[in-house]
Design a protein around this nucleic acid. Sequence first.
DNA 1: CGCTACATGTAATGAGTTACATGATTTT
DNA 2: AAAATCATGTAACTCATTACATGTAGCG
Lengths: 183, 183
Amino acid sequence: MSLKHAILGFLNYKSMTGYQLKQRFDKSVRYFWNASLSQIYPTLSQLKEDGLLTLEVKYQDSSPNAKIYHITDKGREELRNWLIEPLEPQPHRSAFLIKIFFGANIDQNLIISQLNQRLELAESNLAKYQQIRNEITENHSLKNSFTLFESLTVDYGIKSMEAVIAWYRESIEKIESLKRKEM
Amino acid sequence: MSLKHAILGFLNYKSMTGYQLKQRFDKSVRYFWNASLSQIYPTLSQLKEDGLLTLEVKYQDSSPNAKIYHITDKGREELRNWLIEPLEPQPHRSAFLIKIFFGANIDQNLIISQLNQRLELAESNLAKYQQIRNEITENHSLKNSFTLFESLTVDYGIKSMEAVIAWYRESIEKIESLKRKEM
DNA sequence: CGCTACATGTAATGAGTTACATGATTTT
DNA sequence: AAAATCATGTAACTCATTACATGTAGCG
């Protein structure tokens, strides 16, 4: 499970609560790994039981007690081993491509409009990624290895968005051109 | 669930058994939707219970009885509705990008070698997709809408492989160049 | 007075993988 | 003799989502 290792990765930089972890996820890796609080909390308990984390309870008047998790040596080793060992490539599932595959069954205009919707979404995502990219480049030099690796993940987003945008455009054109021939 | 609709999509073309469905999946959509027999069989039962399929049992001497499933009118309607209605964009998870994100924690050569592994894999996938693409173009004219939509899914594979290949190459170079600066 | 932020969880359900279980026929 | 093909499934487990449940403090 990668959630475990992502949590270990963040806690390796800084001890924090589940709530804060969620915020870290949302601020950095959300575009390729989303995690909900209802998944983070049980995972933290489990990591603690496995001896990869320790728990420090901070009693607070103002808000509920905060559970601050710290990574242990065993946790750091687990993280390191996971990072070192090559990962089996995961097959990726795309329900959208299933729809395209069976696209001949419905009116082509309905497919085109769905492609257009996705195209707009991809364009707005691309703009977001480019903005994040600019912020990284402005604030840090890429000589810092932490920054370099973070920027690589953003570059991945940019490159893949550019590729799908081109695909959406070409696909729409091809379907339009088929329509013309069928008339 | 898209598996249901993919099954309906195939059965809409031709009635068949779960085993044959698996073969169809493997021959066409495997690159963006894999399905195992242990998932196909219960899903077929469920689709039958929901009245989207009917079952015809073919008794055979040579091999176990074959259960041939046929799509019903209700099934065709369900397929059509699913194809027509826009799909919520699914967030994609990449454990590999999590590794890259935390890449600063380990020796950079270990990251580079993992990137190289993936690069080789992506190149061989690209070659496969291009071959499939050539076969489609040779055997059918793209004026046929069934063929067009199938070819679009292959084009998606080609375009996204080309994009990640470029990303792998650039990432490796950037890490190499960081190494040089750090020496 | 309601919304957001802080802070924690549980329970039910869905979707998918892996392991287990059976058995005949055909090809290597 | 072993492996692949045809043909069916069940059970256990993992991972993730959605709904449910609780409560304070501060801001507009």
